[in-house]
Design a protein around this nucleic acid. Structure first.
Lengths: 212, 212
DNA sequence: TAGATTGTTAATCGATTAACAATC
DNA sequence: TAGATTGTTAATCGATTAACAATC
């Protein structure tokens, strides 16, 4: 098993977006090179961990010099798949769905919201920016007609599993789930959860157990 | 160092809200008792891990019987600090801030949004449910006058650090940060981040590296 | 060349899993 | 009592950190 086929641990994968973010900052500040030691200082990791992480994907650095910021950034863009476009739909056009539709940063990164779906007649027909809110009944045909690869679930928890089932039937590739449930999807479908209340409750725990 | 003073690992802490959620489900289904083995099946953890996790906080089970669902739920509620109320403010009343203000589940869990702040004159004066959007200039006095303990940052990334600094000066206890930056706060202030794009980029990575 | 810094191996640390005596 | 299941110790696994030879 060579490096390209090596299984990367989730711990490493979840740090990649952070590298991406910091390298982008450096790039915008016109910084050309950086050592693992300097990067470790600004990111709050150890230099050793940074070198280990990056070496999962290749030897991007140069002894005695460090890393070329632009080259490394481009590498990580590619590794994350941010050099591509993804057609997405948002299912559930309530406040959270609308907030995501309005958040243009995702679009800039290549995640294009093509349509939104809801069952509420008051919402159907409205537009968020240039994104139409459509009747959820038409979701399946829309996915097929528009090459949708990612479904973003912003429904209440009661509807989330049935929405996920429908998305899976349409051969969706990935699901970004904001509903506070653990969804069942087949192994070939990528599922990423954003469980906001778990984050808030963690904050609550830490507030109540400081100085212990 | 006895059990009550034992340092709990973040891995355990971040699983607590999940226990809370599943136990609440069981409670609503009127299930009275559950063994670590049954719970492991529905939660997708190992029974061993569940027993280890819970025993960080006390011996809540009974040999030969399992765990009393209601009692265990109440314990975890308490451990998470969800038996208390927290006055919160939302800083940044854009789409995301509004979505959070509208999400009544947080309120039901005891996190009470008392006010929202923005610098946009078009937003100041509006109400989300019964929550006023106020001029960000008045944030400091409002925090002091209303016993605010948690600040929720929903501003663009450029403003997030200065908002955090101001919150810290007002003796805020916790910050729930949605801005895509790593904030600097003193050690006694609890900081919990929701970095949505890191979650989305992780999904993107996994989409591009399936079957490896 | 000398100094700096990587890539990589080895050591350590921490978290998860397995096993089982205690006990309800 | 016998069976079930916990609480807890020991074993394993995986991730992080340290160290250093390779090399730019």
């Amino acid at each position: 098993m060579d490096k390209d086929n090596m299984k990367i641990s989730m711990a490493v994968i979840r740090r990649l977006p952070k590298y991406h973010r910091y390298l982008k900052d450096l790039l915008e500040k016109d910084i050309k090179r950086i050592s693992s030691k300097e990067l470790s200082k600004i990111m709050g990791l150890t230099a050793s961990q940074i070198r280990q992480d990056l070496n999962n994907f290749g030897g991007f650095g140069q002894q005695g010099y460090g890393y070329n910021v632009e080259a490394l950034f481009e590498e990580i863009e590619g590794i994350l798949g941010l050099d591509k476009h993804y057609n997405t739909i948002i299912v559930g056009a309530g406040n959270l769905g609308q907030a995501i539709a309005n958040y243009t940063n995702f679009e800039k990164a290549g995640f294009l919201p093509k349509g939104m779906f809801d069952i509420n007649p008051k919402l159907i027909g409205l537009k968020i920016r240039d994104i139409q809110i459509l009747d959820a009944d038409h979701m399946e045909e829309y996915i097929k007609a528009n090459g949708i690869t990612i479904g973003i679930i912003c429904t209440p928890k009661e509807q989330a599993q049935s929405v996920a089932d429908r998305l899976v039937k349409c051969n969706i590739q990935g699901i970004w789930n904001f509903a506070p449930v653990d969804l069942n999807v087949p192994e070939h479908v990528i599922l990423e959860n954003v469980h906001l209340s778990e984050s808030l409750f963690t904050l609550s725990y830490l507030l109540n157990h400081r100085d212990e």
